[in-house]
């Protein structure tokens, strides 16, 4: 038996909306520690890792480890039916190939029950090494979204360069070139407005912009985003979900042919 209650159905809805274009089917692994999902896009260029800790839920019960394969577009269809302030309760047991989503309005006057068919998904579990990164940049998530969207109108790829003083995002295309330079900014009223650059050694990497633009769909989930880079390694783009976990996106770099 699995049962978990979230104060805001809208949170899971936003999470699924932010990842469902990259991965259409995925298996949620449920255990005493929480809910996890890890899946690569069909081209094996990007990976989504979602972790929702059990202590971040209002109620969390998983008698034994349990896998729930779901079509994320179907899941999104159901989560869209939740009211803005509804709570969400998820229930599933191994006897049925179903997961139930219960949406309850704040005054408990409306209770909606949606049952989603689970599916068997053959997915391989990947070991993601806990690497030390050459550079870590934290910046407002809306700023990162703006940068990748703006550069996406100029070129297909972005060259990210981190030095001690700044991080530069550069793109080139048929119409011309663009460079956006962000300096470290620590003296802000709100911590989430900071741009923090931690550099062990300078890095310069190139990535496909369309994936980064896709990752930035998670902007509404967190005020700030952390970008971790090492030469010739996949970049990690992390959105921390307050009090409950994170969604991380990994993207393999482009390399010289």
């Amino acid at each position: 038996m699995f049962e978990a209650q979230m104060a805001q159905a809208a949170l899971l809805k936003q999470i699924i909306e932010s990842i469902r274009e990259l991965i259409t089917e995925a298996t949620f692994e449920v255990s005493g520690t929480g809910m996890m999902l890890q899946a690569m896009d069909s081209s094996h260029v990007s990976l989504v890792a979602l972790n929702l800790r059990s202590d971040g839920f209002q109620l969390f019960r998983a008698d034994r480890p349990f896998s729930m394969g779901m079509n994320l577009n179907h899941m999104a269809k159901m989560l869209k039916c939740a009211g803005k302030d509804d709570t969400l309760t998820m229930r599933a047991d191994e006897a049925n190939d179903l997961v139930t989503f219960l949406f309850e309005s704040p005054g408990n006057e409306r209770l909606a029950e949606f049952e989603l068919k689970l599916m068997d998904i053959t997915s391989e579990n990947l070991g993601i090494p806990d690497a030390e990164y050459s550079a870590t940049v934290s910046m407002p998530s809306a700023e990162f979204q703006r940068i990748v969207k703006d550069l996406g109108s100029i070129g297909d790829t972005v060259e990210i360069t981190v030095t001690k003083d700044d991080v530069r995002f550069a793109a080139s295309g048929d119409i011309g070139n663009a460079t956006i330079k962000c300096r470290q900014l620590l003296d802000t009223e709100k911590p989430e407005d900071r741009t923090l650059i931690e550099m062990v050694e300078p890095v310069n990497l190139t990535f496909a912009l369309r994936y980064l633009i896709n990752f930035s769909k998670a902007t509404s989930l967190a005020p700030s985003v952390t970008i971790k880079l090492s030469t010739e390694m996949p970049v990690v783009v992390e959105y921390k979900l307050s009090d409950i976990g994170y969604v991380r996106f990994y993207l393999a770099p482009k390399i010289e042919d």
Binding site: M40, H44, V45, N125, L126, G127, A208, P234, A252, E256
Partner: peptide, 13 residues
């Protein structure tokens, strides 16, 4: 430029 795949970075466990 060529696109690297994640398969060479993350091993199946």
């Amino acid at each position: 430029m060529g696109q690297k795949s994640l398969d060479s970075f993350f091993k199946s466990v």
